[in-house]
Write a protein that binds this DNA or RNA. Sequence first.
DNA 1: GACCGTCTCCCCCGTGCGGGGGAGGAGCCG
DNA 2: CGGCTCCTCCCCCGCACGGGGGAGACGGTC
Lengths: 216, 216
Amino acid sequence: MSVTVLLVDDEPLVRAGLRAVLDAQPDIEVVGEAADGAAVIPLVRKLRPDVVAMDVRMPLLDGIEATKAVLKSIDEPPKILVVTTFENDEYVYRALRAGADGFLLKRARPSEIVHAVRLVAEGETLLFPAAVRSLAAEYGTSSARARLERAALTEREEEVLRRMARGMTNAEIAAEMFVGAETVKSHVSAVLAKLGARDRTQAVIAAYESGFVAPA
Amino acid sequence: MSVTVLLVDDEPLVRAGLRAVLDAQPDIEVVGEAADGAAVIPLVRKLRPDVVAMDVRMPLLDGIEATKAVLKSIDEPPKILVVTTFENDEYVYRALRAGADGFLLKRARPSEIVHAVRLVAEGETLLFPAAVRSLAAEYGTSSARARLERAALTEREEEVLRRMARGMTNAEIAAEMFVGAETVKSHVSAVLAKLGARDRTQAVIAAYESGFVAPA
DNA sequence: GACCGTCTCCCCCGTGCGGGGGAGGAGCCG
DNA sequence: CGGCTCCTCCCCCGCACGGGGGAGACGGTC
């Protein structure tokens, strides 16, 4: 059973890139495109996609408002994957608060993009845990809260991420945590997967950008 | 040949911490302590330390004045490592203008502290370039200026660092900057050396911690 | 003219890193 | 009880990374 996707981005290049990546998968089908959030509602009604991959920054109606609109006006709303360039997190968080199911970095590798689409289609969330926690706290009870918590890092993973954000190597982390190097590798891999990071540097960036660790 | 260090900090706890960290190294020896900048000159004359680790904020004579005094009144002055709690401390900048050789954050890891002491002892500078540039610009000519500029990143190095802080690999940076991968490697190595970073992750951390790049 | 810093590119080389698997034990919960 | 997550550790493997050199070209400065 194939996953159907609607692309919403004002840049044709990005849409083309996403389409190329996603259509290359046998189990994923891009069923439509839109250049702005304003066009999303009718397209969702018509196409009934499983997932909407939506840019946060768009000229007429941005991803935040479009997300709200979709969730409010559609009975069984599609999963919403917010697409971002990483620098403008404020928008992403507001979109997540608005009910989006995850976020995706534009510079993510193809395999990660595919992975993200499959995950949200399955009902998983792709959110960074530090944001998750504050969101969950301020959002109180709701389905959103449950979704958010599923994406959170475990205790050990958070401990490892903090040490990664202090510039420590796996070996140093292992020594400080009194575990084997292989164990640290496992945690690091888990952290990278959950954060959608390609390497430890991107994970540390995510930690700073999300406020999980704060400078000075 | 051991590196001798004089600790100057009004908080006994900080002195004890630094002493513990530094004395644990076979090649570093803490030869004295002072609780205020006012006591520095005679101690430096007497002990002839290679490095003075000096707090910027002290009751009687602060790190800025103490730095000036040491440089002015001692023939072959020790290297001065300014110790601070805050990254963007106006006092630190003024101390660096006064001729200090580097700064050290109190929350740095032991290994980083040790590293910092060794580096300044060798005549290197530990300054973050963003601060360095404005300092060099407003300070004009002086021996301090020469030292500071040695630590400043070049244009290309800054461009590379910005891209590193966006999570890009060397190959991606090379493509975006229209240069060869080897060139990027050269710039990255220069950045790491100047920042005293061990790897790109530490460089990105330094970029965030210094305000060279800002989260969200 | 000689000098120096910057930018560009090249070589070799070791290794830390990350992906892809798996596996066993502890604890929780329906 | 079985099933689940989490933590722990193990294998193999490819590769990007970073250190160590060097070198040519350009543009300034002395």
